[in-house]
Nucleic acid binder design. Structure first.
Lengths: 254, 254
DNA sequence: TTAACAGGTCAACGCTGTTGTCATAAGGTG
DNA sequence: CACCTTATGACAACAGCGTTGACCTGTTAA
């Protein structure tokens, strides 16, 4: 329905033929892999259609046979990252521990590919891996005993918090080396030296600030969120049923 | 030391002369103001050097006499936004209500100018407005009765969560119109139509998902964080002293 | 064996940020 | 008032971007 111009053929109907001039046989997977490699090796700015074509040994315009536009490609990259994270996650049935584990995995997974995370963490892909994740997480919450509207609210807060922190911390990691060092230095050089009388609270806590600001606040924020959710749950269920019956046996749904 | 090419003159040494062809006299402030107006009126895509020049009635290249590059301009815009947000915040002495109010202000302030928020929310500036904010927020927490290490931990989680969500939601808003509409549609078109037997949890909550995913999860996440922090506080202080004595009279410190 | 067509290639468009060069009006100086 | 310096605006050009229409060609099914 996207006007008449659709050079993209659905992957199912694709009977891949015709190697590129340099001999490579293109595929959706190969393109996404190469894009991730480009991002990892040369930073977010290196990901352009033209450079990606060059890295693949194909004309840039060939990519448009596989992705409607660069945004479409970006979503495919994002979904691949979700898939990789989910594949290493093995829920135990304890909703709080499972969500904590998943959150930390999403976070550290993003830091492993900061450039990709920065570009894609805020997108709704609607692709297979994302759908599987949504299904599983909501299942965990409903299984824990949250009523549907509450489960959705907490799901939304949990997921967006994980993605938001992933993007935030990934952005720091993705900064040019000089800029990153400069930022770290600000806490020592500026904040830790403020006089007591003009900035009593900073001065009193300077030691803690220097220590704490050097690492991600995500674990703290995640624990606060989960702890509030747990409190809400006992409020609702009247104290019992903290574990609950899973709506679905452990393991990501396919 | 930024090589030999510096057409930017420090604002102090500026003795503004020479009106533009259309009669406007340029200045740093006028450029930032106009950029904010452009962003607000015509969306994030409208902010290009060329369009900004057009809106000012000046040649695009004239802007490079005031800002080193577009990133420099964006930081100036961001700084202006921080100032505006702080200026409209008036703490009452109730730590939880005050932090809630500040968080929401930071968030909505970013959404009003998503382009700037996306680029600047993860940077430590060490500038006056930022320092004032840090001093005030830590003061609020210590005044509430949090011991120093706990105050710093919660400060960090609170601030980074506000910035992270601001960037996340701003990024959505900053999306090209088509992509934004597409995302909204995914929840209706894809998620709301998944069959019950393959995706029972999504199917059961589809109605809530469509409703909830359309808006930001930040208010929920913020309330969860504050509620957990409040619980932590009564745990520490043994239930009394919920209001506490402010370490500093209300109002951002200057 | 051949015809259809998926898919790779080429060239071009309009857009972007940025810079080297030139022109000129403002403002200090005498 | 006239002069000179110079700050600063204008112009033109560059390289690079995403994207598309037209063309060409190898693969595959019949």
């Amino acid at each position: 329905m996207t006007s008449t111009n659709d050079r993209v053929v659905p992957p199912a109907a694709r009977r891949r033929r015709r190697p590129t001039k340099s001999g490579v046989v293109l595929s959706e997977e190969l393109i996404v892999e190469t894009a991730l490699r480009l991002l990892k090796e040369h930073g977010a700015d290196a990901l352009t259609v033209r450079r990606l074509g060059l890295a693949l040994g194909a004309d840039p315009s060939a990519l448009y046979r596989y992705f409607r536009d660069t945004d479409d490609l970006l979503l495919a990259i994002a979904d691949e990252l979700i898939g990789r994270t989910l594949r290493t996650w093995h829920p135990t049935g304890d909703w709080r521990a499972d969500l904590r584990d998943l959150g930390l995995r999403v976070h550290s997974g993003s830091l492993a590919h900061p450039q990709a995370a920065v570009l894609s963490s805020y997108r709704v892909t609607g692709r297979v891996h994302e759908i599987a994740a949504v299904e599983t997480i909501i299942g965990v919450l409903r299984g824990a005993g949250f009523p549907d509207p509450e489960a959705v609210r907490i799901y939304h807060a949990f997921v967006d918090q994980a993605l938001a922190f992933a993007a935030l911390d990934a952005a720091s990691v993705a900064l040019p080396r000089a800029a990153r060092d400069a930022e770290a230095g600000v806490w020592r050089a500026t904040y830790a030296r403020l006089p007591v009388d003009s900035h009593p609270n900073i001065a009193a806590t300077a030691r803690h600030l220097v220590l704490d600001m050097g690492r991600s606040a995500y674990p703290t924020a995640l624990d606060l969120l989960l702890s509030a959710a747990a409190a809400r749950l006992t409020e609702i269920t009247g104290g019992g049923d903290a574990k609950g019956t899973p709506q679905r046996p452990p393991g990501p749904s396919h």
